[in-house]
Design a protein around this nucleic acid. Structure first.
Lengths: 194, 194
DNA sequence: GTCTATAGGATGATAGAC
DNA sequence: GTCTATCATCCTATAGAC
């Protein structure tokens, strides 16, 4: 179905990935360029041959995953599906993106406020657009009677909180098949527990 | 029902509260002692007349709310109630504590790893005990057929993710009555949305 | 692509005057 | 209880050699 080709990452990509792991553990502000360099067994000054600074690492990391969410959410919005199928799709893409970008999501969630200038504006905008798309799906479901008459913001908040925190759950989930997780998450979030 | 007495906070309490607000906005590591001092219109050196250092602010802040959760959760565990009532109570105490300690919860969630020594150990232990108590409640509900046969970790994770993120939702929630929020949260988390 | 050396500034914390 | 002055250390980033 897919053909995977193993490509040697550029030095820049290596730096960003190492930084991502450290950012996930301690947060952007608590990780120094020296920490990143040490994890790569080089000196901090050498990093600047590949990247312009710490900010570039942050914005690359965050924009990459923010764009993934935006792209996938646009695709769902464009489809014509019943509300419940759309919500299912939102849950599924969150799980897929989390599996592939767990460190990026940690940084997006916890360190977006340390972005500067246009990057900050852009990410805030993307997040708002994403939420608004999701809100519209829920409201449509409510107006068509597909969803129980509950406060839409409470529904939006509870589903989105769970999905945004999935990155915290990668060890336990490691043993769980992704497709099983999708099914279970959909069941719990949509049908409840009783 | 209650008698409220307005007590002038000590200078130490003032410092901790100002710090908490800044930590919530930017995270522990990105806030300097100078930042805290500036927000209080004094110089950084003056802070040390009231506190021993930045770490003391962090551990005071986190231990206060962690103990609140531990105390409340123990009370629920000790009661004899049907599982669903217990889960309802867990949701309610989370909302109550969030209303009173929103900044502390932000710091507990995001900066616990910057604690040192015994404080770190203690908080990790309290968090694990809390989760284990909740897990037991869910498993009992499953074994007694009160809860649908779903993966207990998925249930635990989705409810706890939502509750732990409630602190992010204090502006919108501001307009919403706390008791209405409790009822809606219980409905969405337990009964689902369809 | 990595190194050493270093600039220039921020940081947590202390000493001692008022 | 707050201040000024200061220390020792850490930080991001640059210059220039290899």
């Amino acid at each position: 179905m897919y053909i995977y080709k193993v490509i040697k990452p550029t030095r820049k990509q290596e730096i960003i990935q190492v930084a991502a792991t450290l950012f996930k553990e301690k947060g952007y502000s608590a990780v120094s360029m020296r920490d990143i360099a040490q994890a790569m067994h080089i000196k901090a000054a050498s990093l600047y041959n590949h990247i312009s600074g710490k900010q570039e690492i942050l914005s690359t990391l965050i924009l990459e995953v923010a764009e993934a969410f935006t792209t996938e959410m646009s695709a769902i919005t464009a489809e014509t599906l019943p509300t419940l199928k759309k919500i299912e799709r939102v849950i599924e893409i969150h799980i897929d993106i989390t599996v592939n970008y767990s460190e990026n999501i940690a940084t997006l969630n916890n360190d977006w406020m340390h972005l500067e200038g246009d990057d900050l504006k852009q990410v805030v905008k993307m997040r708002e657009a994403y939420e608004e798309n999701f809100r519209r799906i829920i409201k449509q479901g409510l107006s068509q009677g597909e969803i129980k008459p509950q406060h839409p913001e409470v529904i939006l908040f509870s589903i989105l909180s769970t999905l945004r925190n999935l990155y915290l759950w990668n060890e336990k989930r490691g043993k769980m098949d992704v497709n099983v997780l999708k099914k279970d998450m959909v069941a719990v979030l949509i049908k409840g527990i009783i």
